Computed example of a mutant assay.
Amino acid sequence: MYEAHFLAKPDFNRFPTYPIGVGHIFDEPNHFVNGMRYAENYYNIHFVVRGSGWLRTSVGSVELKPGMGFVYAEDQYQHFGTNADDPWEVWWIYLSGEGIRDLIGDKRIGDVWAFSFEENTRLIALMEELWEAAGKNDMACVPRYAALSYEILLEILLNTVDLNAPSEPGLVHAIRRAAEFMRMNCAKDLPLQKLADQCGISPAYFSRTFHMQMGMPPLTYLNMQRIELSKQMLITTSKPVKQIALEAGFSKPSYYIERFRLAEGVTPSVFRDRYMRPEALP
């Protein structure tokens, strides 16, 4: 299904960004764009929330998964689409504004800008808020439309991972070593600064490069290792769940239970009941 709200450009032209259109696409196995190009000061942004798709870049085709998105800038030829056997669900926003160039800088030059927003739930919340507001198509809401579109663009700039960032060959090995260190020491407190220092780079650059190399942000990877450690304790010991959470590296048992349920589909207690070894019983 293809749903969209289109908004007329306001007479007031001083907004840095303004949404010309906002939409939602799902259950459309034949959705694709091949060769479209927008005029000056127009930008096309997509967020994948379910399913999968592809994005053609200057170096080949990139698979798009949930938690990934892209921005096509003015004058760029657009080539993207869903995978027919796994149709995606995407939110999109069509932006215009004289202030966008200054905001995104050189990201509008050259290749399409791909990014990951995996741990940024605020982006989709903002898109849903804009979608609801745009459905009213009320000229009295023009400042709100502009403010929401500006906030969405800032979230992409400040709180997503740039998947176009180049990776230095020597850094790849350093990131792999850091990942192994995290796996072996996941129960310990591992500040991002400490991990970045091991690689000789800034925390922000470490996060971006780690995500590119390992396919997930550092915190997601660390939580995954901690959950694996906790699973071993759940099935081989009779320790309380709260104690296991702390010994596995989680500072709050409630957060541990939440992450465990998301990863395994059940709570730690249910997992233990299913798989606990008889010799571990008290």
Results as ranks from 00 to 15, higher is better:
residue 6 F to V: 11
residue 7 L to Q: 02
residue 13 N to M: 09
residue 17 T to S: 15
residue 19 P to I: 09
residue 22 V to N: 03
residue 23 G to Y: 05
residue 30 N to K: 00
residue 35 G to S: 10
residue 35 G to E: 04
residue 36 M to L: 12
residue 36 M to R: 10
residue 37 R to S: 13
residue 37 R to V: 15
residue 39 A to S: 14
residue 42 Y to N: 09
residue 47 F to E: 01
residue 58 S to Q: 14
residue 58 S to P: 01
residue 59 V to D: 12
residue 62 V to I: 15
residue 67 G to D: 02
residue 68 M to N: 08
residue 72 Y to E: 06
residue 73 A to P: 04
residue 77 Y to F: 15
residue 78 Q to N: 14
residue 82 T to V: 13
residue 83 N to K: 10
residue 83 N to P: 01
residue 87 P to L: 04
residue 89 E to I: 03
residue 89 E to L: 06
residue 93 I to C: 08
residue 97 G to L: 09
residue 100 I to R: 07
residue 100 I to L: 15
residue 102 D to C: 03
residue 103 L to R: 11
residue 105 G to K: 14
residue 106 D to K: 13
residue 111 D to E: 11
residue 115 F to V: 08
residue 115 F to T: 06
residue 117 F to T: 03
residue 120 N to R: 12
residue 121 T to R: 10
residue 123 L to G: 06
residue 125 A to P: 00
residue 127 M to C: 14
residue 129 E to L: 12
residue 130 L to G: 02
residue 135 G to D: 07
residue 136 K to H: 13
residue 137 N to T: 04
residue 141 C to S: 09
residue 142 V to N: 01
residue 149 S to L: 04
residue 152 I to Y: 09
residue 154 L to E: 14
residue 157 L to P: 02
residue 168 E to K: 06
residue 170 G to M: 03
residue 175 I to R: 00
residue 177 R to C: 04
residue 178 A to P: 00
residue 181 F to I: 00
residue 183 R to D: 06
residue 189 D to G: 01
residue 190 L to V: 06
residue 193 Q to A: 10
residue 194 K to G: 01
residue 196 A to Q: 00
residue 200 G to M: 00
residue 201 I to Y: 01
residue 204 A to Q: 06
residue 207 S to E: 09
residue 212 M to T: 06
residue 218 P to T: 03
residue 224 M to G: 05
residue 226 R to S: 08
residue 231 K to Q: 13
residue 233 M to V: 01
residue 240 P to W: 10
residue 243 Q to Y: 09
residue 250 F to C: 05
residue 256 Y to R: 00
residue 259 R to P: 01
residue 260 F to C: 02
residue 261 R to A: 13
residue 265 G to L: 09
residue 270 V to G: 01
residue 273 D to F: 08
residue 275 Y to F: 15
residue 278 P to I: 08
residue 280 A to S: 13
